[in-house]
Design a protein around this nucleic acid. Structure first.
Lengths: 249, 249
DNA sequence: TAGTGGTCTAGACCACATC
DNA sequence: ATGTGGTCTAGACCACTAA
């Protein structure tokens, strides 16, 4: 029970890919493909290092990344073993567009508004710009199978990005930002619910007063600048937030 | 601009606390108390190691934990600097009770049901037990300032925990599990919205058809066992999910 | 060119779990 | 008593950034 498994592992020292990363990729793939089944012991680090011709710290670094992802558990005096549960993906700063595309939903986007406006107090506070200063405003409707699924209103600080309507319809805002060289770092997010106003109901094809799922998000880049403030509403019959959490230890 | 700061740091080699942890704690505290202001460069690792009498890997380990928490950013060729944005807390597997208590809300809990039932198909699938097998069922109402805020229905596998009604009302379910020696590891969570049924509306003091925020969660311990399946409804006027996300890099 | 973080090595001793 | 992971050292070379 819980046997140690001899796995075919190898590293390419000629590759520019870090050795620890090569190893962690191979282990992750083995876990994902069921070669390493839940409960399997990985074998001790020293032996693994010797077998691969690596040093122990390098092997530890590889294992640690998978522990951080929740795929492995280490126990002192016991060993390292594959976690039993079905880990899918830890929560990440996700793009609705990418999520839908990954789910095979073929999302389409209709840009309703793409303009520059004066920042309201709320927007100014979120983005850290002066109230009344210029900000980009984008309103979009996201549809799947021709049916509206989400209404998204985003504000961006000026001069950050060239917001082309065509590109906005062809891909997601996050991908556009990444392409523009913006390194996304973190986001503060609030998820709630409320009854649809008449305007919201009409946009989404719901009845006035129908329950809507709401999300507000401020996204920061790695210098700490606020790069986006989003205020979205979703039809709860068509969308819910689903994710995996890891206990921070 | 962005000056390197000389910080008073020291480690106690007699302490059982790991050196890298002592260092990361001191840095985190300095950041939190504003001694290290956003944008500050930390000074190179070699020099820092020398100043503290530590090796470079140890210093790197300390810094890395703060990078993982999103407090620091490393740039090759540039240095390590304090992130600008107001990081509050990364999303964690949180307990509603603890969240409310931390917010000074003085939550109270009313246990409506605490019994053993036969597992429905949905519960059986979530917990990985046989359909029709025995499971614990707990229904609770969470109130703040005497007003209902959430209705929580939880199912637990048998024999895991002694569910004392008094303890359930005095604290949260998660704290009870931790106290019982269960190591929480991860959870799969879905957040959505729907209109309140007549029963839900009455329990929460809302109108039938009013929007409710819903959350379903399956929690796993570190051996991969499902230890809890929760199905909760919240009054959106009184509760929303708020959290910080980090981009996984 | 100089300085930074990124990666890697080959050891060492310790704490903890299991037998 | 043995074996595991946890921590730590004192170096090394490389890749990238900025001046």
């Amino acid at each position: 029970m819980d046997p140690t498994v001899q796995l075919e592992l190898s590293v390419d020292r000629g590759s520019p890919v870090p050795l620890y990363f090569q190893l962690s990729q191979q282990l992750e793939s083995a876990i994902e493909h069921g070669v390493l089944t839940p409960g399997t012991l990985l074998g001790n680090e020293i032996e693994l290092a010797g077998r691969l011709g690596l040093s122990r710290p390098t092997v530890r670094q590889a294992i640690q990344t998978l522990v951080d992802k929740g795929l492995l558990v280490r126990r002192r005096g016991v060993g390292t073993q594959v976690v039993h549960s079905q880990v899918k993906r830890p929560l990440e700063l996700s793009s609705l567009y990418d999520d839908l595309e990954a789910a095979g939903q073929r999302p389409t986007t209709k840009v309703l508004v793409n303009t520059v406006v004066a920042a309201s107090a709320e927007v100014a506070a979120a983005l850290g710009v002066a109230e009344g200063g210029e900000v980009h405003r984008v309103e979009r409707l996201r549809l799947t199978h021709g049916e509206p699924m989400a209404y998204m209103c985003n504000h961006l600080p000026p001069g950050l990005l060239d917001l082309d309507t065509g590109q906005l319809e062809a891909t997601g805002l996050y991908r556009l930002m990444r392409t523009a060289g913006i390194t996304l770092h973190s986001a503060r997010q609030t998820i709630g619910a409320r009854a649809a106003t008449a305007g919201e109901a009409e946009r989404l094809g719901e009845q006035t007063g129908a329950p809507l799922l709401t999300m507000e998000r401020v996204t920061f880049d790695d210098t700490g600048r606020a790069v986006e403030f989003g205020s979205h509403t979703y039809r709860p019959s068509r969308y819910s937030f689903e994710f995996q959490l890891l206990v921070r230890s």
